[in-house]
Design a protein around this nucleic acid. Sequence first.
DNA 1: GCCGTTTTCGGCCCGACTGTTTTCAGTCG
Length: 575
Amino acid sequence: MPVKNRNIVEIFNEVADLLEVEGANPFRVRAYRNAARTVDELSGNVADMLEKDEDLSKLPGIGEDLAEKISEIVKTGELSQLKELQSRIPSERVKMTAIEGLGPKRVHFLHRELGIESLEDLKAAAEKEKIRHLSGFGPKMEKKILEGIEKLAGKKERYLLKDVEEIAEAFREHLNKVRGVKKVMVAGSYRRCRETVGDLDILAACGKDSKGEVMEAFVDHEDVVEVVSRGETRSTVIARGGLQLDLRVVAQESYGAAMHYFTGSKAHNIAVRRLGGEKNLKINEYGVFKGDERVAGKTEEEVYHKLGLAYIEPELRENRGEIEAAQKGGLPQLVTLEDLRGDLHSHTRLTDGRNTLEEMAEAARARGYDYLAVTDHSQKVTVAHGLDVKRLRTQLEEIDRFNDSSKGIRVLKSIEVDILEDGTLDLPEEVLRELDLTVCSVHYHQNMSGSRMTERILRAMDNPCFHILGHPTGRLIGRRDAYEVDMEKVLEAAAKQGCFLELNSQPDRLDLSDVHCMQAKEMGVKIAISTDAHSIAELDFMRFGMGQARRGWLEAKDVLNTRPWNEIRKMLRRG
DNA sequence: GCCGTTTTCGGCCCGACTGTTTTCAGTCG
């Protein structure tokens, strides 16, 4: 079994965890985590790169030592350093650092003083009130530890954007109503449109005398079940459902700097601050400072400009080259919802959708679209009552009737046709030729090997009726891994054959990933941002796909459905 | 462990909150 990037990522992160509880140099720990992130965001396979004799130490955050370690992992499947660390440090000790208020130092100290090796030891020691007597600890800390152990069990790690949207909006509106509040925004990974968020970072700007009221309104919100900490400018609460929310209150003149700081990402902020340091500027959440003098901070634009950078959109702030691009004036002009002319993937009641063709089309028109592709399932998908040739033809007649009598929206004849196990399509070519376009997707036999899955998709692309590859990796965020397809080969084939890839906007799919979007752009493959809507309401999922597309640096020209239909029609003609 | 128009050492982002102290370390984001 060839070593995958994910194996390397996991090993490096585990080394970092273990080094941390051992009390190693924090910068050394960070080096392992940075390297893990670099590998995680590579579009290509590290094993292949080594095969081609590429120099891994050229990658950001990877020097000679870590390049050598990667090489060892690829060759042997493991890392001797990790084995050695594991033999010395029980993994249970790492788990303890997940407890609120317990970090590596305290875990290390508890082990040294009381021989605590596991959560069970820790619980027993706390219950026997052994911890409160240690220097630096006390009764409160002991209580916090016991509560922390309880919480650990039911803790959800990350939430889908869609699942936190409602609560984010509720808090935003609630705080906006407080007297003296000028602006409220939800920053953090939520603003950067990451696929999932761990918590919500809320930022409020207000006058000096209303700070207290804002904090009070925050911790008193009806959805708050616990106040973790409460200060004058910063508080943390847990909301119903376990989601953590942080509020920061700042003065208006610092709002831009605070927005920048609390939007992150951490890696982006570190890089920006380092750049500031080179220019003798100190950057914190209150502003940009030259000595004691504040030289910027009211807006984010100001902060960037002071550093000689163009404004960087939140979705790009991951330290993946955006700072260098901003220095050179080479940032992408990111695609926006307004650029979209239509949606190329939707379902109706004929299969597993909830609305009729007319209702879907009307809703698409109401959203300002010029066209909507109706792409019901094909016969293979029996659970969704997929269409055979006869039922599809009936639908095509219905579409003709609709288009003849309706103005302002065009329904495109299409289908989400299954890519069968052998790479053939689920309906005969003669009927597929009658359609305006096809979305071709894998639904069954998802757990074949990577090479067979890749072959299956490439065979499907050989079919001249193949246009768009639907939800290209099949992953369901937090529930099902992507199938092990070789994306580089798929993109190569798509570029060669004139096919397209979908970015499916369902909030639990968001399939393609941001990294693969970047790779597609680089290889000249255009992306269709589609909702796969199963109801009128789901047409609005486009905002999630758009966030992902923007994280993938896509511009309007990189996206298929920013074009009018007559232009797309020409692009769909295969050589 | 990485990195360098300050390059082989000595930095590595910066501040708030808590619980413990009585001026601060640890943790967190």
